[in-house]
């Protein structure tokens, strides 16, 4: 009987003492953590995509709470999250413009000439090592081994017919694919943008015609006909000024190579 009593008492007291000590210690050794940090963290999308430029959502939350980062950097969270963060931090809201990835190439297996048959590892970077610019005659073309697909955490970009294509419903605009693309032909564009030229070739028109059926030959027709002066041919390539573009779609209609796509 005594043994049972002693066991219960001694362990109970031991537990009580340790518990008390820990409770006491947590008071003494209490470290102030900014409560806003947790509040900010809870509002974030939690994808840890790194689109904000910080190491994960926790890193961004810490920086926001410390006032070192703007509240509109969470791309997957978009405007809604930016609003919430601004509320928590008590700063004026500056909305994050929703972005989306766009592959500036449409020359897949059907359209772009191949320079050689590549049979190395299925990786865009290793394909780049051969002859410097990949397996297509056009040195700006998508190689199509899907480094972007592997980088995407949202299953939003896939290679179809040898060229990467973004699923606009899934893309959150974190920019991981743009980072992973060794050709740097994936661009983050405003989600509201209606038209985009799907070509990155800065080669001269005559060269483009030989290498790809769907390359920009810098005919400048779009530049001449754009009603709002939003599209210009710079370095042999049509480039849209997002701030001026109204999305009328006229350029897409008249493009001689049909490379300006309506999104």
């Amino acid at each position: 009987m005594n043994t049972i009593l002693f066991s219960i008492l001694s362990l109970g007291i031991l537990g009580g003492v340790f518990g008390g000590l820990l409770a006491f210690a947590s008071k003494i050794f209490h470290v102030e953590v900014d409560p806003r940090q947790e509040a900010v963290r809870n509002c974030l999308a939690g994808a840890n995509c790194g689109g904000c430029g910080f190491p994960g959502c926790d890193g961004y939350a810490k920086a926001v709470a410390a006032g070192e980062a703007p509240t509109n950097k969470c791309v997957p969270g978009g405007e809604e999250t930016a609003k919430k963060l601004a509320e928590i931090m008590g700063v004026e809201e500056s909305s994050a413009e929703a972005k989306i990835a766009f592959v500036r190439c449409s020359g897949g297996d059907l359209n772009a000439e191949r320079r050689f048959n590549y049979s190395g590892p299925e990786d865009c970077r290793s394909a780049m090592l051969f002859g410097g610019k990949g397996n297509k005659t056009c040195t700006f073309a998508c190689i199509g081994f899907g480094n972007c697909t592997r980088a995407c955490k949202f299953d939003a970009i896939h290679v179809e017919n040898g060229v990467a294509k973004v699923n606009r419903n899934r893309c959150v605009g974190c920019g991981a694919c743009a980072e992973a693309c060794p050709k740097k032909i994936i661009e983050l564009i405003p989600k509201s943008q209606k038209v985009m030229p799907a070509c990155s070739s800065k080669a001269k028109g005559a060269v483009v015609i030989k290498s790809c059926k769907v390359g920009c030959i810098a005919c400048t027709k779009c530049q001449r006909e754009c009603p709002s002066d939003a599209i210009h041919v710079i370095d042999n390539l049509a480039v849209i000024d997002y701030s001026k573009c109204t999305g009328c779609g006229h350029c897409a209609e008249i493009c001689t190579r049909k490379i300006i796509k309506v999104l």
Binding site: L11, L14, F18, L21, L22, A25, F29
Partner: peptide
């Protein structure tokens, strides 16, 4: 009761050390 008591001690100790180091 050694095993039981030791587990208790170790758990409490680690918790304490963690708090102490954090501060």
């Amino acid at each position: 009761l050694e095993t039981l008591a030791f587990i208790l001690v170790i758990a409490a100790l680690v918790q304490f050390v963690e708090m102490f180091l954090k501060k």
